[in-house]
């Protein structure tokens, strides 16, 4: 199976977001970046499928800035065979445009399975995987929390509201990965050395104008300061009174 893993470089989750001068994007000054957390599960699953079948390839692709080479090299060090950067210096928040760019590249490569994180934790769109599947005519299961592969058929489990769905799907398929799917490996020293010799290519992204144009990016209003009602169980009556009479929450 030839597997493509779509990844994104995003600000780390402990980063406070500041608005850039244009009022439409975040200010990257002082921001640390990392591989999107959900993409870690996608990459790990791709490596496990390749190990299970003892055949095929894992190509990791991102739509992102040149600086994303760091995350791609890390993916190579963990075991991916090949990395492709579809380069753009813009912050891409529009999934329609992102899907166009990825799709036009995917058409040029041999691919049986596309693995993605369920969403990138910057724009939090959670729409690229099933959109891409529909464009490719592939089967698709989103938010996969457990996955097995037997005789060419995937069995996937995913959490829905109040239940867990068990699905089957054959390749070609797009699978989007949720937390809990696996325990991602770290790069070994040997892997880091080997990554230096692996194919790495960079092509400009074929990125159209967004379908959802950004008007502005704003910070949410700060919550008004609350108050400490007291210490220990003695404060419970005061809390109940405040929740009933003030907050009207009970």
């Amino acid at each position: 199976m030839d597997i493509v893993v779509c990844v994104k470089r995003v600000p780390t989750t402990d980063t406070p977001i500041k608005i850039a001068a244009d009022g439409k994007s975040f200010d990257p000054t002082g921001v640390k970046f990392e591989l999107n957390a959900y993409d870690e599960f996608a990459l790990e699953q791709a490596l496990r499928i390749k190990e299970q079948l003892n055949a095929g390839s894992v190509t990791v692709v991102t739509l992102g800035p040149k600086a994303a080479e760091k995350e791609l090299r890390d993916a190579l060090a963990r075991g991916a065979d090949k990395a492709v950067l579809l380069s753009t210096e813009q912050w891409v928040s529009d999934s329609w445009a992102c899907a166009q760019a990825l799709h036009s590249w995917l058409k040029t490569v041999k691919c049986d399975v596309v693995l993605c994180g369920k969403q990138a934790v910057d724009a939090d769109n959670n729409q690229l995987p099933s959109r891409l599947a529909a464009m490719l005519g592939f089967g698709c299961v989103t938010e996969v929390a457990k996955l097995t592969l037997e005789n060419g058929t995937f069995t996937a489990e995913r959490d829905i509201e109040g239940a867990r769905e068990v699905l089957t799907c054959k390749a070609p398929a797009v699978l989007s990965c949720n937390k809990g799917l696996n325990e991602p490996r770290r790069a070994s020293l040997k892997g880091i050395m080997a990554a230096k010799a692996k194919p790495y290519s960079e092509v400009p992204a074929q990125l159209p104008e967004p379908a959802m144009a950004i008007v502005s990016l704003t910070l949410p209003p700060a919550r008004a300061a609350g108050r400490i009602l007291g210490t220990g169980a003695d404060a419970v009556p005061a809390l109940i009174a405040a929740l009933r009479n003030e907050a009207k929450a009970l």
Binding site: A134, C140, T142
Partner: peptide, 23 residues
Amino acid sequence: HTAMGKDLLPRVAAALDAGLVTD
């Protein structure tokens, strides 16, 4: 924006070649 909506509407958006804003 539920498990079903997140899975379904992007596919419809692809079929209509349309933009989609989620959540």
